[in-house]
């Protein structure tokens, strides 16, 4: 059985795919807008993709606080239902 990817790995892959950036750029401290070149449409699209991938709901007021890659990883780790 293939080893299950961590939340962090999956989040990073999705960011690389959607923003067309290099994997090395996607560090926990990287800011979506300033460092990864995202605009407001990208950030909405990314949050929707995270919601779907991890089956979590991110209210708009929470989404606004997710400025860095690390913010997202933390948020998802805190809110995702542990899969048994």
């Amino acid at each position: 059985m293939a080893e299950k990817k961590s939340i962090e790995e999956r989040v990073k892959e999705m960011i690389v795919e959607q923003l067309g950036v290099n994997p090395e750029q996607v560090t926990p401290k990287a800011k979506f807008i300033e460092d990864l070149g995202a605009d407001s449409l990208d950030t909405v699209e990314l949050v929707m993709a995270f919601e779907e991938e991890f089956n979590v709901e991110v209210p708009d007021e929470e989404a606004e606080k997710l400025q860095t890659v690390g913010d997202v990883i933390r948020y998802i780790e805190e809110h995702v239902e542990e899969e048994s």
Partner: peptide, 8 residues
């Protein structure tokens, strides 16, 4: 210029 622009 980059894959993101093409995808959008």
């Amino acid at each position: 210029r980059n894959p993101k622009e093409a995808r959008r």
